[in-house]
Design a protein around this nucleic acid. Sequence first.
DNA 1: CGCGTGACCAGTT
DNA 2: TAACTGGCCACGC
Length: 112
Amino acid sequence: MKPETFTFFHNVHDVARLIPRGRVTSYGAIAKYLSSPRSSRMVGYAMNAAAGDDSIPAHRVVNRIGILSGKMHFKSPKAMQEALEQEGIEVKNDQVVEFNILFWDPTKELGL
DNA sequence: CGCGTGACCAGTT
DNA sequence: TAACTGGCCACGC
């Protein structure tokens, strides 16, 4: 990636695109990967900018306990859950089942 | 050019 | 053990 375009938002989008199908990650994990553990909430804001962008799997990004905190920002509140279920991820009561197993940590998978 | 705010997280009290 | 607070970057008004 180009350093010129190395902005926080752009990075968040970039990392989100790297999330494997059928896996999920958290805002904090992405923030940590970007060396800004305290900027997790801006990661969410960045995803908001990604809403509507089909090239960015925003539905694979949930909060630290696996809750679909951003479902309301999708076209339809249930769109996020359905998108996850289509990837084989079971969602119960707006929460990813076995989130701890499906969790994809960029700092671990991509390396630091 | 400055202030407020937004899909959160982790350490303290 | 539950609740509170601070922190962080970018964008809009």
